[in-house]
């Protein structure tokens, strides 16, 4: 498929309706879902509900964008849910007015807390990436270890307690708005645009595709494969840190149990969005649609008063459908 040769830009090809269905299947499914929900529920297309869906999707969407980098480079990051908790707790401890949870001398300015949170996330990612790149250990195993370790560190750091009473400045990340658009949505949009640019327009983005498509060929063509591998995990970790802080800011308190199993929803969004777990093939726009699809589905079923257990079943069906689509696409290559 042309994504494999993304370095050379999209190749020209004749439009084949079946191929179009495969290529845009997920977009079509998304559109159909939106139309159906708009027909059965008057509120679905209201501005407020659209902003709600985007706000509810932002955290998973940001995690999924980070995950897209890792999966494109032929890896997986199972640690993001735990990094969400660790970065959220550490940043919150700098931005709380609660005397029991506060770091001495606090509360510190929100900007400092956010920088520290991003650094904690990036550091977790760097540890993941360094071990994967240096020792060639499968990322599944390395990030599985980090999933356990980061959660343990979060519990140790907070002595198992929540960090409540966050400062208004810090909470703005979750509750503020810019020109009527909620801040989580603004951050989500910013992260998406930067990720899109990096993956589609920058040299580094082409290297990510090349490393995921064929690491040997990438090495031969002069790409530093270890550097690319390290970088994608740092990106995923930093974005998990960002998501963790947004979660704490949104709910008003950082919890050690935050983010449990979030890695699974992030992977689901990436896979539903058509990115291949084999690496090298996929688009961040697909991930965006995948995350929105999950968000719209949860929202729509809530609006219709459907029990949340159905949402889990439907998400399962979607994942399998997306992977089958991906398989049929791969066979045609």
């Amino acid at each position: 498929m042309q994504e494999r040769v993304a370095a050379g830009g999209p190749a020209l090809r004749r439009a084949d309706p079946r191929d179009l269905a495969r290529r845009y299947g997920i977009l079509i499914a998304f559109a159909v879902l939106c139309v159906v929900l708009a027909l059965v529920n008057d509120n679905f297309l209201s501005t407020r509900n659209i902003l709600n869906v985007l706000r509810q999707t932002a955290i998973n969407g940001i995690l999924a964008i980070g995950m897209t980098f890792v999966i494109l480079a032929r890896g997986i990051d199972l640690s993001v849910g735990s990094v969400v908790a660790l970065a959220g707790i550490v940043a919150a401890s700098l931005a709380t007015t609660s005397s029991t949870a506060m770091v001495a001398g606090g509360p510190y300015p929100a900007a400092l807390a956010i920088l520290v949170g991003l650094a904690v996330g990036a550091a977790c990612g760097a540890v993941n990436g360094a071990i994967v790149a240096r020792f060639n250990v499968p990322s599944f195993v390395v990030t599985l270890a980090m999933l356990s370790a980061a959660r343990g560190l979060a519990l140790l750091y907070a002595e198992g307690r929540p960090v409540p009473a966050l400062t208004e400045g810090f909470r703005a990340m979750g509750t503020g708005s810019v020109l009527g658009v909620p801040m989580p949505v603004v951050i989500f949009a910013g992260v998406f645009l930067v990720a899109w640019w990096v993956l589609n327009q920058s040299r580094f983005g082409r290297q990510v595709y090349a490393v995921g498509g064929n690491p040997h060929a990438a090495t031969v063509s002069g790409i530093s494969v270890p550097f690319v591998r390290l970088s994608v995990f740092v990106i995923s970790g930093a974005l998990a840190g960002l998501a963790g802080m947004m979660l704490a800011a949104r709910t008003g308190s950082a919890l050690t149990q935050a983010g449990i199993a979030y890695e699974l929803d992030a992977i689901a969004a990436v896979v539903i969005g058509g990115t291949s777990l084999a690496g090298g093939v996929g688009r961040v726009t697909g991930t965006l649609i995948g995350a929105l699809l999950i968000g719209v589905m949860n929202n729509g079923l809530d609006l219709m008063g459907v029990e949340s257990y159905y949402q889990q079943v439907i998400k399962g069906v979607l994942i399998v459908a997306a992977v089958m689509l991906d398989q049929s696409r791969s066979r045609r290559d």
């Binding site: 407020r48 706000r55 509810q56 949860n298 949340s308």
Partner: peptide
Amino acid sequence: QTANWSRAEAQTLMENWLT
């Protein structure tokens, strides 16, 4: 509806119910 004892899940659910 269940929000599994979770603040984040309840927040999402309540947002949708308010809609």
